[in-house]
Write a protein that binds this DNA or RNA. Structure first.
Lengths: 347, 347
DNA sequence: CTCCAGCCATGAAACGTTTCAGCCCAATGT
DNA sequence: ACATTGGGCTGAAACGTTTCATGGCTGGAG
């Protein structure tokens, strides 16, 4: 059995009868080495089972071939799809990715950003928990490129790739209004989340645009964007006296919507007959839900790919890079959960 | 604006009027330093915005505070739940995690393992694509501890945390048999996957145990364990002449089952009346599906936590570590998708 | 035959830490 | 008064690479 000891470039060098510099060249700039020596060195590497020490390489080079990705919630398929897009693009560019999950927690996000700083990653893709652009700009002062993900940057010096959440919210609520609903609940949270804020703002806009008061859009706050938070919200929703209960619900994402759906179904409230439901993200499970979910679709993988490409550009050619804020348009996908009109008012 | 330059321990030292060694001690062994100097050094660190260089530290120490996690499919909620369990345990132990997604692809798995080797991670948690125990033992010869995840190790010198997939398959099919089904399709793949093999083996065992021939368990292979693969399988399933079509389907995981459900529904085949359906994993979306899915539940987060704890033990106290193969028991959760008997035979 | 240009290879410095032998000095024991 | 102890700090070596100035060859030009 081979010794646990670490085989270094020095061992390879002496085994192949060359200098360390030559081995390094074989690894990094093979063209500089004659094919004969190259072959000898490669053989030695193979024989000794040499694996370059990334720490030493990075220390010497001053930078690593690594990027970081920080998302809000790994358990949300929206983010895993997004991550897949990122991973594909990063991987083909020969970079490695450190995948982090802040879970919507500021402290965890901070801890991961510290980790990424220590690792001297070249760049970070992040869906921040709050509007921490100051913190992110400080990252950039350290030479770490930053691209905002699923979040529009207000700072023109920061790349971002996002979807127009305001428009998404508007589309969703306008659709419900057209179906005849006049009292629509907005479920989502925490309010600090930009995504929640913007989607809500869009919803408000749709209401006022239809000449309705904002009071007709009661708001149910959730502590997180999860299925169980949605279930709780459904209970609160049904707690209201029936006469001023909302006839439709717009959820800030699909997980919450699926939770609300479960909660309603459990209480024998029919969707969409008694309460219509619209989600956000159009994750794959939305279409497969008990009542197929109307949802606002976002180009998930494309979002990830675009952001990764932007970051790679910034990392590889910082000189000619122009910061951009890419904004995609969302698209409403109508399914069973909102199909029938409420019947109160004919739209 | 602060210079992009890197602040090193040397700068901190001179700024605080102490030696580099002292700064290092403040960072790593604060007790060795008097509180007065400690305060001075911390102030300097803060003022200069010093962030330790992980590469240098790791190079000197010879090991990193990093572990790797390689899963088969990030888009599968089963694995993200599992990852959450791992992350929680790892995080509280002050270790960092590099999260990798092999996507069931051998080449990608290899690439990620190389990456982890180069990073000199202390340990790896992996759900391998195939039975690559040789490759994994080689990792261990390098001093990288390995724990198998969601896969039973046949090698007693390799820790593993798994669920009894054979039993799970047996539970699922026995349940269908009790509901009166006599012809049950098994959908899943690729066959190389141990999880698929074992779940199928369990299914076979249930059949033969009931005195039925294995021919009564036709097998539909899928190229991957995804929703879309499930949809395709449903189409093939319905291609068979009705008289020898299976009356029930057991899928190797929930994603496939949800796909099959979608495919069947689309072709107006009622579940469970015409075809009963059982999935595997009991991901959260199974309960929320169009027809709530009967599924074989695995203790997902606990799986992750246990594996992480095992790995941490092996990493921190290699001497007194005993390799263990932990096997959890799966549990059948019966829901709508398999509830009514087939009506042909009364169980 | 000498000189020059290229090609290959060499050897040592440098990257930013940690670690450890050793030094200084004040406090304690005799 | 002197030896002993030990807490607090220093300074330099070492980790495994990459990089770059240097130098030895070889072969073609003058």
């Amino acid at each position: 059995m081979r010794e646990t000891s670490v085989v270094s470039i020095r061992d390879v060098a002496s085994h192949a009868g060359v200098s360390m510099g030559t081995v390094s060249n074989v690894l990094n700039q093979p063209d500089l080495v004659s094919s004969a020596t190259r072959a000898r060195v490669l053989a030695a590497i193979d024989e000794l089972g040499f694996v370059p020490n990334h720490a030493a390489r990075q220390l010497r080079r001053g930078r690593s071939r690594t990027l970081g990705l920080v998302v809000l919630d790994v358990a949300n398929p929206f983010f895993t799809d997004l991550a897949k897009g990122v991973e594909d693009t990063i991987g083909t560019a020969g970079m490695a990715l450190i995948f982090c999950n802040s879970d919507g927690d500021q402290a965890r996000e901070d801890a991961y950003l510290d980790l990424l700083k220590e690792q001297r990653v070249q760049g970070v893709l992040i869906t921040p928990v709050d509007d921490a652009s100051a913190r992110l700009l400080r990252l950039r002062d350290r030479g770490i490129h930053v691209v905002l993900l699923d979040r529009r940057s207000r700072d023109p010096d920061l790349c971002s790739v996002s979807v127009d959440d305001r428009l998404g919210g508007e589309l969703a609520v306008r659709h419900l209004l057209e179906a005849g609903h006049r009292r629509i609940a907005f479920v989502g949270g925490p309010v600090g989340l930009a995504q929640v804020r913007d989607r809500h703002a869009g919803a408000v806009q749709a209401m006022t645009g239809a000449g309705l008061d904002e009071a007709a859009l009661p708001r149910l706050d959730t502590p997180a964007m999860t299925v169980s938070a949605g279930r709780d919200a459904a209970a609160r929703l049904l707690g209201a006296p029936r006469e001023n209960r909302a006839t439709a619900v717009f959820c800030a994402n699909d997980l919450v919507a699926l939770g609300v759906l479960q909660g309603l179904t459990q209480q024998r409230v029919r969707v969409p007959e008694e309460i219509a439901l619209v989600g956000y993200d159009d994750i794959d499970f939305a279409a497969a839900a008990a009542v197929p979910l109307t949802s606002v679709r976002q180009p998930r993988q494309q979002l990830g790919r675009t952001a990764a490409a932007l970051l790679l550009g910034e990392v590889n050619e910082p000189a000619e890079h122009r910061h951009r804020q890419v904004v995609f348009e969302p698209e409403l996908v109508v399914r069973e959960s909102s199909r029938r009109p409420a019947g109160r008012t004919t739209g």
